[in-house]
């Protein structure tokens, strides 16, 4: 059984039919990427999984259990954790407070401490800046913080929405290295990206989303070699 499975999901914003029957699966330990142009419905897909939007039709299942009935905060408690688009850190709280907020649902103080150390080892910059308020971090540091905060919840699956957005190439590399790193440590990741080249490079499998529908799916290497994909997303 797949860890995460979407079947024929239809989501709307009022009358706008944003997802028109999405089906996808993420297996335990995989990196799966969802690529597509602006407005294709990538963020909507993640929001639907997280319970922020309820689909009108279709099902979202985590290890067979339907998530649609759950409210957003309950989905979090199931271990489905999102790193939102545009980071959305708590700008007035310190880095450390932000990270601790990520572990809000947990009670195991000792383990939280260990995870904090672990996040600091992944992103040493955050440790240096732990008493600085989030809003004063650079864009790259904010992305690290948003990722770190999600990790503090001990996700079973991590949903990342365009982590490369607005970052300098060096930083994008750093973030993607971390993604690979996390995956090697066993983390399952659903990665939404516009930067198809990079995303297909780290991912095991990929889906191409166009105006609310999945038009291509398959092995990441094959997708990267697909002429259609090449033309549309990889600049020829």
């Amino acid at each position: 059984m797949a860890l995460l499975e979407l079947e024929n999901v239809h989501s709307y914003y009022g009358n706008i039919h944003a997802l028109k029957g999405i089906s996808l699966t993420v297996e335990q330990g995989e990196i799966v990427t969802l690529i597509g142009a602006n407005g294709a419905g990538k963020s909507t897909t993640l929001k639907t999984i997280s319970g922020i939007i309820d689909p009108r039709k279709g099902s979202v299942r985590l290890e067979g259990e339907d998530l649609v009935a759950y409210r957003a905060h309950e989905v979090v408690s199931k271990g489905v954790i999102q790193v939102p688009e545009g980071r959305r850190i708590f700008t007035r709280l310190t880095v450390r407070e932000n990270l601790e907020m990520g572990a809000f649902l947990r009670n195991d103080t000792q383990e939280i401490k260990k995870d904090l150390e672990w996040v600091f080892s992944l992103f040493p910059r955050l440790e240096e800046r732990q008493n600085q308020v989030g809003g004063t971090l650079s864009g790259g540091e904010q992305q690290m913080l948003a990722t770190g905060r999600a990790l503090m919840a001990r996700p079973r699956i991590l949903l990342m929405d365009e982590p490369s957005m607005g970052l300098a190439p060096v930083l994008v590399d750093l973030i993607f290295d971390t993604i690979k790193d996390l995956n090697e440590q066993g983390m399952t990741i659903l990665l939404v990206e516009q930067n198809a080249l990079l995303a297909l490079d780290v991912a095991d499998r990929g889906y191409v989303l166009e105006t609310g529908m999945i038009t291509l799916a398959g092995d990441a290497k094959e997708l990267a070699a697909n002429p259609q994909v090449k033309e549309a997303y990889l600049g020829g």
């Binding site: 957003a72 905060h73 979090v76 999102q82 959305r88 990520g102 809000f104 905060r149």
Partner: peptide, 13 residues
């Protein structure tokens, strides 16, 4: 600080 993000932390609003 941020209602939406609070929910994403698993907080029951």
């Amino acid at each position: 600080e941020d209602e939406d993000v609070a929910e994403a932390m698993g907080i029951n609003l």
